[in-house]
């Protein structure tokens, strides 16, 4: 089954993680909130599927390109 990796689009801090491994998500569902430049930006799932892995937790700082979640 194809995997989709959600990456951090820019440096920032994870404020909240809305899903956990095993949850099913639909395209457009918010996976987590990334704070960058004093803005809270929702990161959404690009596909329908199941969350295979979540690689961040609330409070983590991420760099652009860091893996956030794997959806399959």
């Amino acid at each position: 089954m194809a995997e989709e990796i959600i990456e951090a689009p820019m440096v920032g801090k994870i404020i909240e993680v809305m899903v956990k491994a095993g949850d099913s998500v639909s395209e457009g569902d918010v996976v987590c909130t990334l704070e960058s430049m004093k803005m809270e930006n929702p990161l959404v799932s690009p596909v329908d599927g199941t969350v295979k892995d979540i690689k961040v937790a609330a409070g983590d700082t991420v760099q652009a390109g860091d893996e956030i979640a794997v959806i399959e």
């Binding site: 689009p9 960058s36 803005m39 929702p42 959404v44």
Partner: peptide, 16 residues
């Protein structure tokens, strides 16, 4: 731009 962009297309991340 970021806010409008995400409203129009939730996948878009135009901030940078």
């Amino acid at each position: 731009v970021q806010t409008m962009g995400q409203r129009e297309n939730p996948r878009n991340f135009l901030l940078m």
